[in-house]
């Protein structure tokens, strides 16, 4: 598999603030890559480096095997970008901006192909292209950017929190577009997002970053193995000790006849015969969600922040 985005040890300082601190990120061709992290973790900074808008202070960043700094325009012919907070020219209508951006990306807006794509997207996103951009809500500004990005085919889509401000119906339209692109065009997509269900549904691989570094990277299946699966059931006439005796069980708790515990995701199948022997009822086995994965890293941060605060409190 060819690597489309290859970032190694990326550093970016803004004055005294270290925004990126040795970030690694790899996105292969045809891959939909989720890019997750709390606010201020450095997602947008990474994207701005990839677009050649800012220069890395250290490390390397390559897009299609080339550094984006200095000769970004040539790379941009193959890239579609959707910013997280879309700023538009208030005097231009949405339709004008969509066409302008398409032309700036080198597309011929006179072709039937472009017109058909644009018309389909305008319709799918239920967008009114005649209004001046100054009157658009956040969601509508986002739609301008999304339609402009999807109306011209690209080899790489860089989407920075693309669905912020969109309603759930529009989020679904967006997901459908992304799936279609990934399936049919073989394009690569870097999707920075907070909406974990969206990432779970769309992405092949995920990188979680925190404080300017990647803390987890891999397929969702890989990452799931790092967390525990939750198991709960109801059972009469057993004692807690027999539950604790099961192989690989952690965090056992009982609440009104219902037993809860977690188990390493890799050990779930080994656990099943033991559960059968306990004649459990209404058994649920919940694999770890991305949210839990994510919260684990948030959780670290919250703990770390508290640790920092304590000396001050005393």
């Amino acid at each position: 598999m060819t690597t489309v985005i290859d970032i190694r040890g990326l550093q970016k300082r803004f004055g005294r603030v270290q925004a990126l601190d040795g970030l690694d990120l790899e996105v292969g061709e045809g891959e939909v890559h989720g890019f997750l992290g709390p606010n201020g973790a450095g997602k947008t900074t990474t994207i701005r480096v990839l677009l050649g808008l800012i220069r890395a202070s250290g490390g390397t960043a390559e897009v299609f095997g080339r550094s984006p700094w200095g000769k970004a325009a040539a790379l941009h012919e193959r890239i579609a970008y959707v910013p997280g907070d879309v700023a538009l020219w208030p005097n231009l209508s949405g339709g004008e901006i969509i066409d302008l951006l398409a032309r700036l990306r080198g597309a011929d807006t006179g072709t039937g192909d472009y017109k058909a794509r644009r018309a389909r997207l305008v319709d799918a996103f239920q967008f009114d292209p005649r209004k001046k951009a100054g009157t658009y809500s956040k969601g509508n500004r986002q739609k301008v950017s999304l339609i402009a990005a999807f109306a011209v085919p690209a080899s790489l889509y860089i989407l920075d929190e693309p669905t912020s401000g969109l309603d759930p119906v529009m989020e679904a339209v967006f997901s459908e577009e992304v799936s279609t692109i990934a399936k049919n065009d073989g394009s690569s997509i870097l999707l920075s997002s907070h909406i974990l269900s969206e990432v779970e549904a769309l992405c092949d691989r995920v990188t979680i970053i925190r404080a300017g570094r990647a803390v987890e990277s891999g397929t969702l299946a890989d990452l799931r193995h790092l967390t525990r699966t939750e198991v709960s059931f109801v059972s009469d006439g057993i004692d807690e000790a027999s539950v604790r005796a099961l192989a690989g069980v952690h965090d056992v708790a009982v609440a009104s006849d219902r037993y809860h515990f977690t188990v390493d995701s890799a050990d779930v199948s080994a656990l099943l015969p033991g559960l059968g022997a306990l004649s459990v009822q209404s058994l649920t086995i919940t694999p770890p969600s991305l949210e839990e994965l994510f919260l684990r890293h948030y959780g670290d941060e919250i703990t770390a922040a508290n640790d920092d605060l304590e000396p001050v409190a005393r």
Partner: peptide
């Protein structure tokens, strides 16, 4: 930014 992220 949105202009500079195109081929311009």
């Amino acid at each position: 930014e949105i202009v500079l992220a195109t081929a311009a």
